[in-house]
């Protein structure tokens, strides 16, 4: 019983902040989402599901959801793939490879807002870094952020550049954890490079991939700094992501009701994903420990 009490004492500080800034706000926002407070009025009215009705009737919200899905697909898989192949190439430690690793990893360390500041110029039409050098190769100028068909993909490219090096690190450590004996055995069997990749490396990296996948998912739902900095969700809402939509409604549009309702929806989606991913993570933990 002494252990029981001790445990609660040790847990108390962390639990206090966890409840205060994760679980209490989750309940609070759920409760708030059933109220509507008109501009200039003192008290809020209970309105059942009207905020949700308004939310789902808002084309900007459905667009943000759609954009976020495209953004998630187009960012998570490519950056995992790039991270994986970089890891394969740079796993062995040599001077050159260590330098290259540092170059790929460095974007992870810098603030997304600083990266976005630089990439505004990278993407600037005609005179920007990308168009300037593409121009030397004979390509015409592109409206990387001004064309609503392209802008979201431009943000994805930035996100891949920013995060692939991070995932590369996980894959490098994953690769280093695979025992030589597997490959030696495979070589004796006459397995090709691709076969070894397919039947040894990838399966054994399963836990790493699961872990990295979850981190990447968190990234795509919780980082919208580049949207704030580069596009404000435009042109025509083509780069609006759900969190930016929440931010905009709460911070600029005085629409707390829509902001709370959309927060509840996002929390719901994230909860669903976490229930699924906890299983994966658990498996990951058992592998490792």
């Amino acid at each position: 019983m002494k252990s029981e009490l001790k445990a609660w004492v040790y847990l108390a500080p962390a639990l206090f902040f966890l409840v205060m800034f994760t679980y209490y706000p989750m309940l609070q926002v759920l409760w708030d989402s059933f109220f509507f407070k008109a501009y200039g009025q003192e008290s809020a009215q209970f309105v059942w599901f009207d905020n949700y009705k308004r939310l789902f009737a808002d084309p900007a919200f459905s667009q943000a959801v759609r954009n976020n899905l495209i953004y998630a697909l187009g960012t998570v898989f490519p950056s995992l793939a790039v991270g994986f192949f970089l890891a394969l190439a740079l796993m062995k430690s040599t001077k050159f490879r260590n330098f290259a690793r540092a170059v790929f990893f460095f974007p992870t360390l810098v603030p997304l807002i600083a990266a976005a500041a630089l990439w505004i110029f990278v993407y600037f039409p005609n005179v920007g870094l990308l168009d300037y050098y593409l121009g030397k190769l004979g390509f015409g100028p592109t409206q990387w952020l001004g064309d609503s068909n392209i802008a979201l993909y431009s943000l994805m490219l930035l996100a891949i550049w920013k995060n692939a090096g991070f995932y590369m690190l996980f894959y490098i450590s994953g690769l280093q954890g695979i025992g030589e004996e597997y490959y030696e055995a495979a070589e004796l069997e006459g397995a090709t490079w691709f076969q070894r990749l397919r039947y040894i490396t990838l399966p054994l990296l399963g836990p790493t991939t699961a872990f990295v996948f979850i981190i990447a998912l968190i990234h795509v739902f919780t980082y919208v700094d580049h949207v704030v900095m580069m596009t404000h969700g435009g042109p025509i809402g083509s780069t609006n992501l759900v969190l930016y939509y929440i931010f905009q409604n709460a911070h600029e549009f005085n629409d707390a009701a829509k902001a709370t309702a959309s927060t509840v929806v996002s929390v719901g989606v994230l909860l669903a994903i976490s229930f699924l991913s906890i299983r994966t993570m658990e498996r990951g933990i058992h592998y490792e420990s």
């Binding site: 979850i214 994230l270 994903i273 976490s274």
Partner: peptide
Amino acid sequence: QLMIVPPILIVP
């Protein structure tokens, strides 16, 4: 909390 990270809960 690994998934329900604070940025999602900025409003509450």
